[in-house]
Simulated scan of single mutants.
Amino acid sequence: MENNQEVLKYTYTFIFNNGTEKKFEILLDKNTLDLISSNQTEVADWAKRENFQCANDLCNSKFEKYCPIAVNIDNIIKFFSDINSYETVKIYAEVDERTYFKETSVQKGVSSLIGIIMPVSGCPVLSKLKPLVRFHLPFASIEETEFRVISMYLFVQYMIMQRGGTPDWEMKKLKQIYEDILKINRVLSERVANLENKDASINAIVALDNFAQFISSSLEYNDLSDFENIFKEWLE
């Protein structure tokens, strides 16, 4: 790490019912939102790109031999491989300027944690979601996630317009992005399912996939009616 590199740090601390604590620290370059290397020397065989069907047509990552997502969530998968997804856990999530706390299921905590790592790992598809990581909201609901995704995308279109480009106000490209995300989630969940003795991590990825499916469906049918009431002062 360069001395002048600005660092953004996210820390998730899991406190289990037996008193055991486990801390996961994520360091990002604050300017690029790239994940700062943890100096991991060994990469698990399951992370090889040949094991991921989505690599052929979606991945042009700098990672030549490995899926960048798999490489960076391997330590999480290993830790939670013997833990049930429904087990209750206390979680402190330290995010930039504030700390969040939630007593919830392990799978929801792991889902929130993996939701940070996937976009910043180097995957060219998920990297489009980096702005959400910069303003990460731990334990977000489906509705909160949908609002944040759409707001992010329309903000990007405004910046494209300001630069003289052609904005995608109909969000057609966002639909394609989420179709690709769904494909990645499903391939990843299949691989993780083969690694775990129990189901904490696989259910965490399934939860992320459910979020993606919900957003994809809303975009497919142009159904944003759930938000109309809160915007009525703008729409009347």
Rank of each mutant, 00 (worst) to 15 (best):
A207H: 09
Y92C: 05
G164H: 00
V71D: 08
E87P: 08
K78R: 09
D34T: 04
L219Q: 02
F63S: 13
F14Y: 04
E2N: 14
F16M: 05
E146F: 10
S216C: 10
I150W: 01
F16C: 04
W46T: 07
A207R: 08
S85T: 01
Y153R: 00
V206F: 10
D223K: 05
N194F: 01
Y66I: 04
R148H: 09
C54I: 07
G122S: 12
I215Q: 04
K30R: 14
I202T: 11
L129S: 01
N18W: 10
N203S: 10
C123S: 02
Y178K: 07
I73Y: 07
I160L: 14
E144N: 05
A204Y: 13
L129D: 05
V149W: 02
E146P: 03
N197S: 09
I36A: 02
D45L: 08
L208H: 00
F52Y: 03
T145G: 12
K30D: 15
A44V: 13
D82E: 14
P138R: 06
E146M: 14
S141N: 14
S85E: 06
E190W: 08
R186L: 13
Y178E: 09
P124N: 04
I114Y: 07
N75A: 13
A47P: 14
P124I: 06
E196K: 02
E143D: 15
K175L: 07
D226Q: 12
R98C: 12
T88H: 04
V7I: 15
M152K: 09
I83W: 08
E179Q: 08
E236A: 04
L8R: 09
E233V: 13
I117P: 00
Q40T: 15
P119H: 05
F135E: 11
I15F: 03
Y153P: 00
A93N: 04
S111R: 08
W169V: 06
G115K: 03
L188E: 13
T166M: 10
K232F: 07
Q107S: 06
T41Y: 02
N197C: 02
Y158W: 03
K173P: 15
D34M: 05
I117N: 03
S121Q: 04
F79G: 06
V43E: 01
N56I: 12
Y86N: 12
K48I: 15
A70N: 11
L8D: 01
D74N: 15
I230V: 09
I114F: 07
N72C: 03
Y66E: 10
Y86Q: 12
A200C: 13
T32H: 04
N72W: 08
I177Q: 02
V43R: 00
R49H: 00
N84V: 00
V187D: 15
F155K: 06
N18S: 00
N72V: 00
I15T: 15
S38P: 05
S201I: 11
I73T: 10
K9D: 12
D199T: 08
M159P: 01
M1T: 02
I142A: 05
G115H: 02
W234R: 03
I36S: 01
D209L: 06
L195V: 11
R148T: 13
N56L: 11
N229Q: 06
